[in-house]
C-alpha cells in the first residue's frame, strides 16, 4: 500500500467535498452507517484522527490490504474506543497538533460494552467528538439485541415467538446518560437529515472538550427492510417521534427539530421485518404497538416536538429548522 505526502490545503482544493470514507468498501446496500460516516467526515474535514470500535463500520472498511479511509484511522478493540481516542487526543495535545480526535463506535460499543471507557472520556473532558452509529443491535455478529435495540424489536437473541414478542426491555436513553456528564454539547442526528447532521458535527468540533453525537443509522439487513428504504425508514423514526432530533448543552435541551407532520409509529414499524410480529392478529401485539406509540407520544411531549405553527424559515421539510438558535 503506497501513500503519498500531501498538504491539507492541497487536499481541500482537490476535493471540494472532503471524502474521508471512500467508495468501494464492503457495506451492504443501503447501509446507514456507511452514509453517516461519510457525512461525518465530510463535515469534519481531513484534520482528524479516528479511533474506531470493532463492529460493522470497522470490518467493511478495512479488509486488509484495503482501506476505505482517507484519514488516519486506528481500530483497537470493541470496548475501548473512548480510551483509545483519549490517548490519541492526549498525544495530539502534547505535540501541539491541531488535528481533532474522533471516536466512532456502534451502539453495542457505546451503550453496552464500551460504556465505561466512554464515560471516563467524558468525565476527564478529553477534546474528542464521540460518534455513536446507532443501528440498534449487534449487527456485525449477526443481529443480536443490544441496550439500544428498541422495545419489541426482534433480533436473533430477542426473537419473536409464541411466548415472547421481541425484546422485552426498553432502549436505553443514552443521551440522558451522556448529558449527565455535563458535557458542552451532545446531539442526536439521523441519516435522513444530512444537512442537520453535518451542522451538528461542525458545531461539536467548534467546542474544545468532549462532545457526543448519536446518529440513527438503519441497517437493512438487521431491521428487515429494503436497502433502498434506509433514508425513508430513518426519516420515519424522526417523524413518528421515536427518534427525536435534539441538541443539548451542559445537560439542557437547547434545540429540537420540530415535526410538522407527525406520523403514527405503525408507519415506521410496518416497513421493518423486525417489527412484523406486532402486526399479527394478537391482542398482545396490539398492546405492544400501543406501548410504542405511547413512547413516541412521550418524546413528543417531553421535547415539545410539535411544530404547531408554520416556521417562516421552514421551506422544505423539517430538516433545516431549529428553534431558538441560528442556522449554520
Amino acid at each position: 500500500m503506497s501513500t503519498q505526502e500531501i498538504s491539507l490545503e492541497e487536499l481541500r482544493q482537490r476535493q471540494s467535498r472532503f471524502r474521508g470514507l471512500e467508495a468501494g468498501h464492503r457495506a451492504c446496500l443501503g447501509c446507514g452507517q456507511a452514509l453517516a460516516a461519510r457525512w461525518v467526515l465530510e463535515a469534519a474535514g481531513p484534520d482528524v484522527v479516528v479511533a474506531n470500535a470493532t463492529g460493522c463500520l470497522e470490518v467493511f472498511t478495512t479488509p486488509w490490504p484495503e482501506s476505505a479511509w482517507r484519514v488516519p484511522w486506528l481500530h483497537s478493540l470493541f470496548e475501548n474506543t473512548g480510551a483509545v481516542a483519549a490517548g490519541l487526543e492526549a498525544a495530539l495535545k502534547v505535540q501541539g497538533k491541531t488535528a481533532k480526535a474522533l471516536a466512532f463506535a456502534g451502539d453495542g460499543g457505546t451503550f453496552d460494552i464500551g460504556f465505561q471507557a466512554l464515560s471516563g472520556l467524558l468525565e476527564r473532558e478529553h477534546d474528542v467528538l464521540y460518534v455513536c452509529y446507532d443501528n440498534e443491535g449487534y449487527m456485525n455478529t449477526g443481529v443480536q439485541r443490544s441496550g439500544s435495540t428498541p422495545h419489541a424489536a426482534a433480533t436473533t437473541t430477542s426473537p419473536a415467538g409464541r411466548a415472547r414478542l421481541g425484546k422485552r426491555h426498553l432502549k436505553k436513553d443514552i443521551l440522558a446518560i451522556i448529558a449527565s456528564h455535563h458535557i458542552a454539547y451532545a446531539a442526536t442526528a439521523s441519516i435522513a437529515y444530512p444537512e442537520d447532521l453535518k451542522r451538528k458535527v461542525r458545531q461539536a468540533l467548534l467546542i474544545t472538550g468532549p462532545t457526543f453525537l448519536h446518529l440513527h443509522a438503519p441497517c437493512p439487513l438487521g431491521w428487515g427492510h429494503d436497502g433502498s428504504l434506509s433514508v425513508e425508514v430513518a426519516r420515519l423514526a424522526v417523524q413518528t417521534g421515536l427518534f427525536p432530533l435534539i441538541e443539548m448543552e451542559r445537560g439542557q435541551v437547547i434545540g429540537v427539530m420540530p415535526l410538522r407532520t407527525i406520523r403514527p409509529v405503525a408507519d415506521y414499524l410496518k416497513l421493518q421485518g423486525r417489527f412484523g410480529h406486532l402486526f399479527r392478529d394478537d391482542p398482545r401485539a396490539r398492546e405492544e404497538l400501543e406501548h410504542l406509540q405511547a413512547l413516541a407520544d412521550h418524546n413528543i411531549e417531553v421535547f415539545n416536538l410539535r411544530a404547531d405553527r408554520p416556521d417562516p424559515a421552514d421551506s422544505e421539510g423539517a430538516d433545516t429548522v431549529r428553534r431558538g438558535r441560528r442556522r449554520f
Binding site: 486506528l74 483497537s76 487526543e89 492526549a90 498525544a91 465505561q116 471516563g120
Partner: peptide, 24 residues
C-alpha cells in the same frame, strides 16, 4: 506530560496504545 488518570486498567492500556500510535 499528559497524565491520564483513567477509570480502569483496560483504559490505561488503551490510552497508551492510542498515544503511542499518535506519536508520543
Amino acid at each position: 506530560c499528559e497524565l491520564v488518570s483513567v477509570e480502569s486498567e483496560h483504559s490505561a492500556a488503551s490510552v497508551v496504545l492510542g498515544a503511542a500510535a499518535a506519536g508520543v
